[in-house]
Write a protein that binds this DNA or RNA. Sequence first.
DNA 1: ACGTCTTGATCACGACTTGTTAACGCGAAC
DNA 2: GTTCGCGTTAACAAGTCGTGATCAAGACGT
Lengths: 119, 119
Amino acid sequence: MDTPSANGILHSGELEIHLGEGLVLAGGRALTLSVREFQLLAALVRRSGGIVSRKELYRAVWGSELRAGDRSVDVYVSKLRGKLEAAMPDRRFIHTHPGFGYRFQGQPSRDFHTEAVGG
Amino acid sequence: MDTPSANGILHSGELEIHLGEGLVLAGGRALTLSVREFQLLAALVRRSGGIVSRKELYRAVWGSELRAGDRSVDVYVSKLRGKLEAAMPDRRFIHTHPGFGYRFQGQPSRDFHTEAVGG
DNA sequence: ACGTCTTGATCACGACTTGTTAACGCGAAC
DNA sequence: GTTCGCGTTAACAAGTCGTGATCAAGACGT
C-alpha cells in the first residue's frame, strides 16, 4: 500500500504525492494545496498507518517546537481534510486518535463497525 | 506468541501494540483507544499470561495508589473489552480472576475444563 | 437455599480536547 | 492602491474523557 519509492513520489492508496513539485494527485485529479498543507500531508503519509503526534507534525512542518495553546496543526488538518474530501468524498484519510495525534490511512479498511461504503 | 520489545512493539496473538505511538492493531485494523485504555492494555499485555492485580494495574496506569472503593480499573477493563470485542468478536482477551485480578491471554487456549466458546 | 461481597455494565456531568470558521495582518501580483 | 491568497490567532461548536454513582449479575461461604 505504501511505496516510499526512490524518485520522490509517495503513493498511498489513490493518492500520489510528488514531493519535489508539491503536487498531489487524488484519484487522478490534481489538488491545490498551500505549502503548509502539502508538508503536513507529506509528513502524515510518510508515516502512513502510524499515529503522528501534534508535536512531531509541528516539528516536521513548521520546523520548531510546538508551543502550548498553538492550534495550527488542528487548523491545517481541518483544511486538508476539506480538500481531500472534496476530491474524494466517502473516503477518510486522516483519522484522529484523541490524546495521541493523527493517523493517515491510504487504504480504506474493512472497518468492523462503520463504513457505509456505498455500492 | 509474546515478543517482549523488539523495538517498542508488543505482539500478542493477533494484537499489535505500538508502545511509542499509542497505536493498537487488531487483526490489521487500527483501534481507537483513549490514553488510559491504551496504557491499561499495555500493562496487561506486558504481563501476558499472568494475573495482574487491580493495585498493580492502577499503579501502572494512574501512577498512584488505588484507593478503597475506586472502580476505575473495572470500568476501563469493561471499555477495553468492548473495543477488543468489537474488533474481534468470538475472542476473549481479558479474563477475570475473582479475588486476584485480570489476566491477558493473546492466544485462544484449548483449555481442558473451561472455554465453552459456543460456535 | 440465603446473605454478602465482588465484578460487570451503564449513566450523568464537569473538564478538557478537537473541529471548524471567521477575522486580522502581511506580502505578492496586478 | 487594490485584490488576492496565505498563515496565525481567536472564538465557538462538537466531541471525547474520566470519575463517581447506581443497579444487575456473579462468586462464594454457610
